[in-house]
Computed example of a mutant assay.
Amino acid sequence: MNLTPDALVAALCGAGAVIGVLVAAVALIGTTAPAAARPKGPLARRLNAAGSADGTGPLSMWANNRLLLASALVIGLLVWLFTSWLLGGLLAAAAVAGMPWILQPGRGSKAQIQRLEALEEWVRRLSDIHTAGVSLEQAVSSSVRSAPKTIAPEVTRLTARLASGWRAAEAYRAFADELNDASADSVAALLIMHVQDRGAGLSTALKGLAAQLSEEVLMRRKVEAEREKPRTNMRWVSLFCLFVFGVSMLSGSYVEPYSTATGQLLLLVFAVCFVAVLVWMRRMALAKPAPRFLAAADQPSGEDA
């Protein structure tokens, strides 16, 4: 490839335009995420799970790796500069940005297990606090100081909702929405039932539920261990394909047909097919979560249940 001054100036202008758009987006949107709100619908709950507060979802994973995104941008610009392929630069940037998704296919499941383990610990501590004779709301408020770090933000927001006048049942539903797990629904359902009848025996029920959560944690860890082999295969296949793609980009005569409009279109088709295969392999290596049974929280009101 002949790198002319005009091509260099055009590439630098394009890079400046991209950086300008990113700076404008940061100025308009900001860099500090607002406090997590209650999901208002199925799509909102999916996006909330994708960008979960603990950084386990794909959106949070990329948002928390600004260095990775900056590297992806630089590599994409370099590929575009030295190959004159805008599509090649975009694909290279996407490949670099998607490395966490490729290298850690089971990260979300493992993080969910850690959250479930933290939930079991919190429920057990909540049962001990409630044994002392305090109300459920007081026990929840007292549990904030000893809440496991993994679910501490959710417990803190639950306490804040109860203190600000949310109906107790809706606050517990919102707590389950944030954890987004069928086991969290079981915990919220038990707390809601106690709010409705205020009967005795809540501490005993919480201890029994904590024991069930402990058994589920062990079961999920066994399942994750069995799924680790296909995930490892997916990781190595992905890296091998990306390595072959990168080496092929350096062999001028081999990739010369892709310089045409038809070649660029075929390259895009191949890239889409490759991503589709990765998604298919990833779904095979991921366990389907149990469906939730609690409805989403309604709009809070100033009345207590």
Rank of each mutant, 00 (worst) to 15 (best):
E303R: 15
R124M: 11
G20C: 10
V26G: 07
A296L: 12
P58V: 08
V244M: 12
Q196S: 06
D177S: 00
S142R: 14
L213G: 02
G51Q: 06
I113T: 08
A290R: 15
L209M: 11
R124Q: 13
L81Q: 03
S142C: 06
Q114T: 11
S142W: 08
V279D: 06
C13G: 09
W62G: 13
G14Y: 07
L218K: 15
L91F: 01
Y258E: 05
G41V: 04
V144Y: 13
N180G: 04
S143M: 08
D6F: 12
A271E: 04
V277K: 09
P5G: 08
E256Y: 00
A7S: 11
K222H: 14
L136P: 04
A25H: 03
Y254Q: 08
G98D: 06
G208A: 11
L86R: 06
L69Q: 01
L78N: 02
A17Y: 12
D298S: 13
Y258G: 00
A176I: 05
W62S: 15
D54I: 10
V79M: 01
R221V: 02
G133F: 09
G88T: 03
V255W: 00
E170K: 00
L116T: 00
Q264W: 05
W166S: 09
R38F: 01
N64I: 03
T131E: 09
M234T: 15
A163K: 10
L239V: 10
N2I: 10
K40Y: 04
A152M: 08
A37W: 04
